[in-house]
Amino acid sequence: MNSIFAKRRARLLAMKSLREHYVPVGSAAVCPRCGKESGHPAVAQNLFVCPLCGYHFPVGAYYRLSITLDHGSFRELYPKLAPQDPLSFPGYRKKLEAAQRKTGLNEAAVSAVGTIDGRRCVVGVLDSRFFLGSMSSAVGEKLTLTIEYAWKNRLPLIVFSASGGARMQEGILSLMQMAKTSAALGRFDQRGLLYISVLTDPTTGGVTASFASLGDVILAEPGALIGFAGPRVIQQTIGETLPEGFQRAEFQMEHGFVDAVVPRNEMRDTLSQLLRLHEKGGPS
């Protein structure tokens, strides 16, 4: 029985992740960093990392889950949670519907429970295709429910961030999600549970200034832009050009805000190692 469900879940995840066409099937992928073209199969086999220069293409939430969790272990949490238009902001509903149609997602956050090398964990993922992964009330609510689910079940938590920051159309309510998610992590932390934050391109604004920066361990994908204020705003403030590599993952590691920069093809093993290292009473 179990294996039938596992197979069904694996197929569901595979189908959902196939719909996430950052690099559409059948077309060539032009790397925005080296400018060279690679065929879809070469990029896809390389986990959507440019085989020539190592640039990490952004990937969708379901794809991320499919390369992180054990085959067939994925079970989605709170899939129906969807955004509202709490401030009746002109044009917001239409834009939401368009984003939902385009991505097949209800919101920018997807949560799941599953296993990595057999160890259970809860994983939240932000998807930058949906409103640039920005923090709406629904994103804040989903992540908070996910954090609460993890502490109620005493499971480690992993969150992959990718966000432009606040959801402008939800104004102050977006800001309040920073307090809500951080407070939930405060409680999670007090229960002695492990939280791994993984920063992917881009992680900025209110997400950097809340849950993304609060991991016991903070990992980042190579080259990811990570910061509070955006580079354009900073450039305007100081009136000079920013140094090469400013606010990139490697810069954040040198400045003490990231434990390790981990390439995509090593991420699952690194997470697995961290889960093993944090098992109560040592690894079994």
Binding site: Q84, S137, A138, E141, L173, M176, Q177, A179, K180, A183
Partner: peptide, 8 residues
């Protein structure tokens, strides 16, 4: 703070 933005 928990109750802000739960109307979903």
């Amino acid at each position: 703070f928990r109750r802000i933005g739960t109307a979903v």
